[in-house]
Amino acid sequence: MSHVVAGNSPAASEKGRPKGSPTPWRPKKQKKNKPAIPGLRSLNGKWGYLFIAPFVIMFLIFGLAPVTYSTYVAFFNWDPLGGQTFIGFDNFTYLLQDDVFWQSIGNTFDIWFWSTFPQMVLSIGLAAVLRNRFLKGKTFWRTVLLVPNITSVLAVAIIFGQLFGRDYGMVNYVLGWFGIPHIDFVEQALPGHIAIAAMITWRWFGYNALIFLASMLAIPDELYESASLDGAGSWKQFRYVTLPGIRNTITFVLIVGTIGGLQVFAEPLTLGGTTTGGDSHQFSTLTLYLYDQAFVAGHWGYGAAIGIMITIIVLIISGINFLLTRQIAGGDSE
């Protein structure tokens, strides 16, 4: 095969292949990407479009079109069933002075904090346990971890709402053993945030543990072996072998978690029972406030403006994440 190709090439035939020469022969002009079925050659490069078409089409319909449309709506005083009046940037200027909007941003990040970092520790710890080669029933444990994730978010929120009940909730019952007075998770800001973070953690810690586990399994065993030969105990192995090995995965989970964290909606809605996010908006999140303004208060244009602001915030955070990832990736290649 390669001989034929080489023969077609004038350069190859001129110089030929010196027999018995120690220098390995290299074809000068080998055809790249020769298709397995010759007839498909003309379509080469175009099949790709077909394969990505389902995603692109869905994205255009359910991603780009609504975003474009809400950007348009954001400049209007918009009543979907009545009139629409163009008001320029009024929605945005109003938004910047809206206390509840800023409060919702604060709440969103606070909930994000409480749901991300404890969860990270939990997931990595769990993955480290599951990595243990002497663990019995590995497949079972790995499957079980996904169960909270495939449970409907609403079901989780309802059950947790009961666990965090003020008078008869199990959490308060257990806290009572230690003499802690009942906490009203719906009324107070920080307990509310923690309750919501607990729901998010419950749904995602198993899923993230699996991602960490996959990443840990990719770390060569030799590293652990040499570490143990050097006298490193299991904690030191974890600290100096496992953690550096999963650094990129931590960043990945952080990014995905942040994007998810900015979209927290069902949990605060179910916890408080209303779209206001508690009596003083103490756990109103960005998306919940969007929903409240557009769908309950009927300020559709204003809701769209909040949506635009969420997009801008996500873009900023993605930018920071991007820089951070690049730095970490660069550090790894050295």
Binding site: T275, T276, D279
Partner: peptide
């Protein structure tokens, strides 16, 4: 009226705040 649900929510929140001793 049209905004009844939203107005109800605001008053409800206000009364809860007082009941909770927040304000």
């Amino acid at each position: 009226g049209e905004l009844n649900p939203a107005i109800d929510l605001a008053f409800g929140g206000g009364l809860t705040r007082v009941a909770a001793g927040k304000m």
